[in-house]
Amino acid sequence: MDRAIAIDVSHLSKSYGSHVAVADISFQVYAGEIFGLLGPNGAGKSTTLRTLITLLTPSSGTATVLGLDTVRDADKVRHVIGYVPQERAIDRFLTGREHLELLAALYHLPKDEAAKRIGELLKLVELESHADRPAKTYSGGMKRKLDIACGLLPDPKILFLDEPTLGLDVQSRLRIWDYVRMLKARGMTVVMTTNYLDEADQLCDRLAIIDGGRIKTLGSPVELKVGLGGDIVSVTLKESAKIPALESALKGQPAIRAVRATDKGLDIRVESPEKALPAVLEAANRLNCGVEFIQYNRPRLDDVFIAHTGRRIEETTPSKME
């Protein structure tokens, strides 16, 4: 692919004393895509993100943002990025408008341009009617919208989102996804961390699965799923004694990629179910194996995650800090 590269991370490592948070990771983010860093808490996603937004200095390796080094050209990098920290990076005593005015001053925007941009952003995130109320009166979803408006204030080339929908209700979540898609449509590059599989699956053009400070795999959600080796047909047999016979009969057949015995039957990886199913049923018939149940699954991102990390992602206990 000869797409423009927005972010180039090369052999990046970050250690704290003897604790290695990120170990020799390399990846590229293309201009105009939504790139996801997916992993459980403590995997190293936030460390990676903080390095990219110049808040951490790598122990070794380099990262460049639009060709600018995050250490040497840190100040220039800060001019082209927007950052949305994890929820509640908000001053409860300031109003929504005051948040944006403060940031406008920090980006040194002239007064009239600041006022114009703040008006547009408040409209975009639907906070106009609440703009002059202190943020402590906002709901979780409204705080998140304000967070995003703050990240967009500098009109960044690249927007960084840290767990953008952590702890939000379903409706607010879908709304945030809409914003992110709209930003992409406007040509913005978006980099986000998440530990929600469905979020990564639905929102990201490409994603890197991070665990234990390393990138386990990287690609588009579709690529990653296909990369597992096709769809899965699960067969449950009436008699488990016949499992080995059917297993050996199916192994090596053209439409079938892999066969794995389970407690009650077989998990069969197939390239396309249309070709494989007749072969499976024909073999079962021939060997006189009674089929109790047959199920067909497309691989989900969960399967990709488990295949590459050997465990499930813990989605139930998201913690604030990583």
């Binding site: 903080r50 808040l55 001019h79 920290p85 990076a89 940031l103 920090l106 980006y107 040194h108 500098p154």
Partner: peptide
């Protein structure tokens, strides 16, 4: 603790401001 400092430090302000 709530990330506001990170938000401020991700902007191109002088580090001592």
């Amino acid at each position: 603790e709530n990330g506001f400092l990170e938000r401020l430090m991700s902007t191109p302000i002088h580090r001592t401001s």
